[in-house]
Structure formats: structure tokens, C-alpha cells
């Protein structure tokens, strides 16, 4: 069974962390992953940087620009991750925009992911219908789970369609925004979390965008299976580096 599905069966709320590969320094990728696992994180999204990250706010934009200046590429990321499964056992997901994958070759990209032990992909600008018609069979062949996003504006009908195409979890974007734009949740999010929870989807939901501390983590996971933190983590490593990451994760988990 895919590590993501296994993890989702555990009887706990999951903390997933996004970071940008090659940031702050080009060779930080593997250490960041190892240190995150040690700090008690359940799942990691490895950000493959892109020059034009449409769905991201300034924090992730800046880390992507820096990582690209540092020399990060798809090929280099795969090299860095070559032996990652010798030391890391939690699920690993690559999150990136579609164009770099298209240039690498979608099949070659998926094949590499499988060789390394990547469990899934999140590609915000690959629409679910194009995925379904053109790429699902390739992802399936290499045992990769593709994760789709939903937002407060996504219609019920479309959520059900996305649920039917998904076989891991659904990435619930907390508000209509780019990453890092808003922090904290209001009534609107509470309604949305409840509404989706009541739909009894076959895939569990993990909430992302706007989570930065124990309060928001707790609110997000009241109904959902877990939460994803991105911008707040990038800000943390920008200020504090990539060592002793439990200083970041413990307060969020309320430890």
C-alpha cells in the first residue's frame, strides 16, 4: 500500500509541512526532510521551484526564486533524493507546477519518482479533467497518488467529481487566496470545513493555506484529517535555519 494511504489510516491528526527544495541553501533538501521527520512531522511536501508560481504569495515566490538562483532543477532534485528512502520513512510528495514536469517528460518524471520512493504529486495547474484523460494511467503505472485542491468556491458537484478521481486525500484550500495571504480562520472557514466534512467523501481531507500555529492547526483539524503548513515554515527556516525543527513543530502540535 502507498505510504500516504497507510499514514491516513493512523488514528491521529496529521501535520504535513511544505518546503522549497534548494532553499535556503542548495544542499539543504535532504537535511530538511530528515530533520522534519525527526521533529514529528507526518508527511512532507517537497516544493519543486518554478519561475512563475501563480498560486503562491510572496513568501513561497521568494523562496522559489532563491532556490532557482541556487541552481535547483528537476534533475538535481532527483539526484539529491536518490538515497532518501535509506533514512526517511514518512510519505513524501513533490509539489510543483506542471511546466517543469512537462519538459522533463511526464512519464520520465513519474518513473523517477517511483525509483526514489516518492508517494504522490501535487500539481496545482494540472486540471483534474486533463489529468483524468491524459495522465492518470501513467501515474497509476508508477504507483503515484495525485492530490487535487478544492476551495470554498468549489461546487459540491465538482468536489464529488474530484473525490471520485482521487485515491489519497483531498487538499482543502482554506480560503480563496494565494499561499501565505491570510492567517487565521473565521466563520466562513468553519462553515466550509463543516460543509465538506458533512459530504462524507471517500477521501479524507487535509487543510492547507492560513495555518501557522496551534490554534489554526486545531481549528483546521477539527473536521479534517490533517493540516499542511507552508509559508509559516519557510519564514521560520529563513530566520532560524533548518536545524532543531521541533522548535517549530512542537508548539503547533501543542507539545
Amino acid at each position: 500500500m502507498n505510504r500516504i494511504n497507510q499514514k491516513l489510516q493512523e488514528d491521529k491528526k496529521l501535520l504535513s509541512i511544505y518546503f522549497t527544495a534548494g532553499y535556503p541553501n542548495i544542499n539543504d533538501t535532504v537535511n530538511t526532510i530528515q530533520n522534519l521527520e525527526k521533529s514529528g512531522v507526518d508527511m512532507i511536501e517537497i516544493g519543486l521551484p518554478f519561475s512563475d508560481p501563480l498560486a503562491d504569495g510572496p513568501t513561497i515566490q521568494d523562496s522559489s526564486t532563491r532556490a532557482l538562483k541556487n541552481g535547483m532543477t528537476s534533475e538535481l532534485l532527483f539526484q539529491q533524493l536518490k538515497d532518501i528512502r535509506k533514512t526517511v520513512s514518512i510519505p513524501l510528495i513533490i509539489m510543483g507546477y506542471f511546466n517543469p514536469m512537462l519538459q522533463y517528460g511526464v512519464e520520465a518524471f513519474c518513473k523517477k519518482c517511483q525509483e526514489i520512493g516518492i508517494d504522490g504529486l501535487i500539481i496545482p495547474d494540472l486540471p483534474v479533467d486533463v489529468y483524468h484523460d491524459e495522465y492518470k494511467s501513467t501515474f497509476d503505472k508508477y504507483g503515484l497518488i495525485n492530490v487535487f485542491l478544492i476551495t470554498p468556491q468549489t461546487s459540491e458537484e465538482r468536489i464529488r467529481y474530484i473525490d471520485s478521481v482521487s485515491d489519497g486525500f483531498i487538499y482543502m484550500v482554506s480560503s480563496a487566496s494565494t499561499t501565505g495571504a491570510k492567517s487565521g480562520f473565521g466563520d466562513e472557514q468553519e462553515d466550509y470545513f463543516t460543509r465538506v466534512s458533512n459530504m462524507n467523501l471517500k477521501n479524507p481531507q487535509i487543510v492547507g493555506f492560513g495555518i501557522s500555529n496551534n490554534d489554526t492547526f486545531t481549528q483546521a483539524t477539527k473536521h479534517a484529517k490533517g493540516a499542511i503548513i507552508g509559508s509559516a515554515f519557510i519564514k521560520y527556516v529563513t530566520a532560524n535555519g533548518i536545524e532543531n525543527l521541533e522548535h517549530f513543530t512542537s508548539p503547533i502540535l501543542g507539545k
Binding site: P124, P127, V130, Q153, S177
Partner: peptide, 11 residues
């Protein structure tokens, strides 16, 4: 052509 957009822009 097509519409390769993040879900946030879909609606």
C-alpha cells in the same frame, strides 16, 4: 490552448 489553471481560478 486549454485551461491549465489552479483550482482557485476554476470558478
Amino acid at each position: 490552448g486549454g485551461a491549465y489553471i489552479p483550482e482557485m481560478l476554476y470558478p
